[in-house]
Amino acid sequence: MTAKRSVTVTVNGETRTGEAEPRMLLSDFLRDTLGLTGTHVGCEHGICGACTVHVDGEAARSCLMLAVQADGAEIETVEGLADGETLHRLQQLFSKHRALQCGFCTPGMLMTALDLVRHRPNLTEAEIRSGMAAVLCRCTGYEGIVHAVAEYASGGER
């Protein structure tokens, strides 16, 4: 039962299969087994939010899920946002508002913000600030992030 198992997930619309020991975290499976290193790993205990991905349409910490638990799930990662060379609208707004510096937190910020905007209609600025506190940024001071998410939310985009 500690032996490796086959795990099949749909990542950004593509079916991918890999082997995982039960103790392998989803974050490591995405990065090391599937080669999707856009999802970042900071603390690996749920605090920093850098590893946030969408699991069946909702944001979750990939460092707090086992890869075997994701078998059969639909995963979206930051790699799925851009369309070829064209950045996702929220990515463009992050650029416009200087919502990133080193970029380490950015994958988690984007996936967290998209979930927030999709599931909370009429977000207030206070709700954006509280919601984005789910991800730690040590560079920007958050102002640009809040502005980018606010403009995205006000655009009626989902």
């Binding site: 039962m1 500690t2 020991e21 039960p22 103790r23 392998m24 975290l25 490591d28 690996e44 086992l66 075997v68 638990q69």
Partner: peptide
């Protein structure tokens, strides 16, 4: 890998 080894069951 971070977690220790364990037997995993998903009833």
């Amino acid at each position: 890998m971070k977690p220790p080894r364990f037997d995993y069951h998903a009833p």
